[in-house]
């Protein structure tokens, strides 16, 4: 175990997989200089000359090229500097990448991982601070990963880079500097579709991913002081989704809060609430609560941005509501 930053855990995962798979190819904007904007490719161009390339600012071309490389036998990793830029390459992601395995009746494989950096927290405004995991998860044929810790980032990215399918790997800009214990072994991976129970509890289940996990844990601490025992679960991957673990927890607690940074309408949180009411309706003691940003673009003002993003206090308040307090 070593105490390392989320960004370095990502870098290490890429380095280990590039050592293991001599055909793994990595491209993205600015990644071959200074480790890229977020330091996730630090020293990789030196260790893997010709395999880590900075692209032109041409998202449609390089997101599509990732697909073209993948279907010709190259396991491909593409970094998108900001998730917001994927909108310039939605044809390449949805029409080309996500559908090809299905459209080809399974004859074409697409071993392709797209790393995206998303989220609020730096006053980046409406076109540099979005969360698109709900959008990605709604597209058949994409796996969607949202790691919340350095260890999860490393273990899940290594799994992505060994997967034979398109994976959108959603990183959060506020997590890159967070440190955590990460296993050293190059064999360390985390399977997709296995939720992590980050804190056990008996009164209410709080489901959160990515940057919201720490806030959910902080909410659980606030609730503990009031004698409320909250269970915090991080699904870690949205596609595939470990509904079994989520449903088992809600069966136990009878109450559920879903915390997400995305806007509420047509979101991942709404989908989980639907699945839960299908599976555990008679166990529920209260309506499922959802804490989200407002249904507006992310404002620039730090004050408004802070107001918009769910906090531990808001998550705790939602939990109390499920307990009729």
């Amino acid at each position: 175990m070593a105490l390392i930053k989320y960004s370095i855990a990502i870098r290490d995962a890429i380095a280990e997989e590039m050592r293991r798979d001599p055909k793994l190819f990595f491209m993205g904007e600015d990644i071959a200089k200074f480790g890229g904007v977020f330091g996730c490719s630090l020293n990789l161009p030196e260790e893997f000359p010709g395999r880590v390339l900075s692209t032109p600012i041409s998202e449609a071309a390089f997101v599509g090229a990732g697909m073209g490389a993948a279907i010709t036998g190259t396991h491909t990793l593409v970094e998108l500097q900001y998730v917001d830029f994927i909108l310039c390459a939605m044809d390449q992601l949805i029409n080309q990448t996500a559908k090809t395995h299905y459209m080809s009746n399974g004859t074409v494989k697409v071993p392709y991982t797209l790393r995206v950096q998303q989220g609020c927290g730096r006053g980046n405004g409406a076109q540099h601070a979005q969360c698109f995991e709900s959008l990605f998860a709604g597209i058949p044929g994409l796996k969607v990963v949202c790691p919340s810790t350095p260890a999860d980032a490393k273990g899940l990215l290594k799994t992505a880079l060994r997967d034979e399918n398109p994976v959108v790997f959603c990183e959060h800009k506020m997590l890159y500097a967070v440190r955590g214990e990460v296993p050293d072994s190059p064999d360390f991976t985390i399977p997709f579709g296995v939720a992590d129970i980050r804190r056990e509890g008996t009164d209410v289940t709080i489901i959160a991913t990515s940057y919201m996990v720490q806030r959910a844990l902080d909410a659980a601490s606030l609730l503990e002081a009031e004698g409320i025992s909250a269970e915090v679960i991080d699904p870690r991957t949205i596609v595939p989704l470990d509904m079994e673990t989520l449903a088992a927890s809600v069966r136990k607690t009878g109450r559920c809060v879903i915390a997400q940074e995305a806007q509420p309408f047509c979101s991942f949180g709404g989908e989980i609430a639907y699945e839960l009411q299908q599976q555990v309706f008679r166990y529920l003691d209260a309506p499922i609560e959802r804490v989200s940003t407002a249904q507006v673009p992310m404002p620039y003002s730090r004050k408004l941005e802070t107001l918009n993003v769910p906090t531990a206090d808001r998550i705790a308040a939602a939990a109390r509501k499920t307990l009729w307090r």
Binding site: A61, G68, G73, D91
Partner: peptide, 26 residues
């Protein structure tokens, strides 16, 4: 054949990717 394509221009970026495999990787 790397695919006929329903989107006009859809093959252009895929061809670049195939070129990456052929030249830069293999």
């Amino acid at each position: 054949l790397l695919g006929t394509n329903g989107i006009v221009g859809g093959g252009t970026s895929l061809a670049c990717g195939a070129g990456i495999t052929l030249k830069l990787v293999n």
